[in-house]
C-alpha cells in the first residue's frame, strides 16, 4: 500500500528560543532548524512498513517555506521514495495545513497517512485529527504500536491512564507518539542518493485551497521568570525549609 508521511520543519528541539523584543513572535533568525522529532518517528514507521513488505511506496509531504526542502531531502535519505512540498511563505495554522494535506491525500490516494502527534513549535496537536476529519478517515492518535492486518489497522495508543488499542478501517490516519520507534540516521550514501529522488513543489493556489485563518496572534511574550532559588546544605535543612518557609509539607 501507499503511505503518505507529513513532516514539518521546526526549530531544533535543543534550541532555547527567545521572544522578539516587539512581542510579535519568537526570534527564528539564524536558529538551527530540523525535522520535528515526531515527524522523524513517522518517517521511520513508514520505512519499517516498507521493509516488512507492507508499504509499497512512501510519499513524504511538507507544508512550509522553500527551505523545508531540506527536511524532505532528509526524509528521502531515510527511505521515502518521493516528496511533495506545498510551498507557502506564511506560517499556517493546523486547519489550513490539514486542508492542504487533504488535497494531497485526494491526489495521492494513500491507504495510510502518518503524522507526528504534535509539532514542537506550535504544540497544537491538531493536524492529524483534522486531516482525519476532513478525509472521513479513522484516526489512531498518539500511537506507540501499529499493526496492519489486511484492510485493518490495529493501533495501540498512549492514553492518560495507560494504553488503549483500537481497530481502524483503512484508509486511516496515524499520529506518532515518542515510543513508537527509534528513528534511524541517514547514511552518507543515502543522503547523496536522496538528491536524485523526485521532489515536486506545488502552491496552495494550485491545490485550490484557501488558507484564510480565524485565529490571530496578538502578541507573544516570555513566560514569567521564576525567582531565584537557594541551595540547601542538607536534607534536614531542606525539610525544615519546606515545612516552615514554603509551608508545602
Amino acid at each position: 500500500m501507499k503511505v503518505l508521511v507529513a513532516v514539518k520543519r521546526v526549530v531544533d528541539y535543543n534550541v532555547k528560543v527567545r521572544v522578539k523584543a516587539d512581542n510579535s513572535g519568537v526570534d527564528l533568525a539564524n536558529v538551527k532548524m530540523a525535522m520535528n522529532p515526531f515527524c522523524e518517528i513517522a518517517v521511520e514507521e513508514a520505512v519499517r512498513l516498507k521493509e516488512k513488505g507492507i508499504a509499497t511506496e512512501i510519499v513524504v509531504v511538507s507544508v512550509g517555506p522553500a527551505t523545508a526542502q531540506e527536511q524532505l531531502r532528509t526524509a528521502l535519505a531515510l527511505g521515502a521514495d518521493r516528496a511533495v512540498l506545498v510551498e507557502t511563505a506564511e506560517e499556517l495554522g493546523s486547519l489550513a495545513v490539514a486542508k492542504l494535506l487533504k488535497a494531497v491525500v485526494d491526489k495521492e490516494q494513500p491507504q495510510l497517512v502518518i503524522l507526528g502527534k504534535q509539532a514542537i513549535d506550535s504544540d497544537n496537536n491538531q493536524t492529524g485529527q483534522m486531516l482525519a476529519a476532513l478525509s472521513g478517515f479513522a484516526q489512531g492518535t498518539f500511537a506507540s504500536k501499529v499493526e496492519v492486518t489486511g484492510d485493518q489497522l490495529n493501533v495501540t495508543r498512549e492514553i492518560d491512564g495507560g494504553l488503549q488499542t483500537v481497530a481502524l478501517k483503512l484508509p486511516a490516519i496515524v499520529t506518532t507518539d515518542l515510543r513508537l520507534n527509534e528513528p534511524r540516521y541517514a547514511s552518507l550514501p543515502n543522503i547523496m542518493k536522496a538528491k536524485k529522488k523526485p521532489l515536486d513543489v506545488v502552491t496552495p493556489d494550485a491545490l485550490g485551497v484557501s488558507t484564510a485563518s480565524t485565529v490571530k496572534t496578538l502578541k507573544v511574550e516570555a513566560p514569567a521568570a521564576r525567582s531565584a532559588g537557594i541551595k540547601v546544605k542538607s536534607v534536614a535543612e531542606l525539610v525544615e525549609k519546606l515545612k516552615n518557609e514554603a509551608k508545602v509539607i
Binding site: V11, K16, V17, V19, V26, I120, D121, S122, D123, T214, V215, K216, T217, L218, K219, V220, E221, A222, P223
Partner: peptide, 14 residues
C-alpha cells in the same frame, strides 16, 4: 504556551 512553554501567545479567534 508555545515552544514547550518558552513563550506565551495571546490569540484572538473570530
Amino acid at each position: 504556551p508555545i515552544y514547550a512553554g518558552n513563550a506565551i501567545a495571546t490569540v484572538q479567534s473570530s
